[in-house]
């Protein structure tokens, strides 16, 4: 059953991400109850709510790591279920954990993870590390990096992936004031270039940006 209003609505949002009536249970808990939102190119949506409200679950669900009980997730007008690989090629996901191998250097980590998606030159990689103020860490094994430095390497992976949709779970964990400013400028630049960002963070990100909105979970 699709009403006319819904058809016109979905036509108007084919360029971005649209989530409708998402329900998710985790064990006994009905975690997400009819969560709906739309995210257009150039927009940032920040999911806020207390601990245990389901922020991470919502992000993982939209990324396609968790199967929702019911509800529809659409990317560029097509259901996620039917074109998962195409959606994933345009998605960069940053989870709680950084997905870095302790035995590999920052550069090696980036080469193996970004290399799955596209070819990037060494210069590009080094420039991104420099942008995140960790150029000196390039050849150090991830084991010897501080928590904040590891987070920045993981963010470098997101930037280098060239994806248009970023899903970032607590991106500024462990970052100092400088780091947060640096990440915010990267996010703003991504929005400027027509990308979109879905994020969950305890502190507001890009609070005064015109394209920044928030979604509250209870």
């Amino acid at each position: 059953m699709v009403t006319l209003a819904e058809v016109s609505h979905s036509l108007s949002t084919t360029a971005g991400l649209e989530v409708r009536g998402l329900h998710l249970w985790r064990g006994e808990r009905h975690l997400l109850r009819a969560v709906s939102f739309a995210l257009q190119p150039g927009e940032l949506l920040q999911v806020v709510g207390p601990n245990g409200a389901g922020k991470t679950s919502l992000l993982r669900c939209v990324a396609g790591l968790i199967e929702a009980e019911s509800g529809e997730i659409q990317w560029q007008g097509a259901a996620l279920r039917t074109n998962r690989d195409a959606f994933h090629r345009q998605l960069a996901y940053l989870g709680h954990i950084n997905a870095l191998k302790a035995e590999l250097t920052a550069l090696e980590n980036l080469r193996y993870s970004v290399g799955m998606r596209r070819q990037v030159s060494l210069e590009q990689t080094q420039a991104t590390l420099a942008r995140l103020q960790i150029a000196h860490c390039a050849d150090l094994p991830a084991r010897s990096l501080s928590a904040g430095q590891k987070r920045r390497v993981a963010l470098a992976r997101v930037i280098l992936s060239g994806a248009s949709l970023w899903i970032l779970d607590e991106p500024i964990t462990n970052l100092d004031v400088d780091g947060i400013a640096c990440v915010e400028s990267c996010l703003a630049e991504h929005l400027q270039g027509g990308g979109s960002i879905l994020t969950a963070a305890h502190q507001p990100l890009l609070e005064h940006h015109p394209q920044s909105r928030s979604l509250r979970l209870h």
Partner: peptide, 15 residues
């Protein structure tokens, strides 16, 4: 799986 690499693989858009 524990360090998150597998998540990245699952979301890489590759089979």
């Amino acid at each position: 799986v524990e360090d998150g690499t597998m998540e990245q693989w699952a979301l890489s858009g590759q089979p």
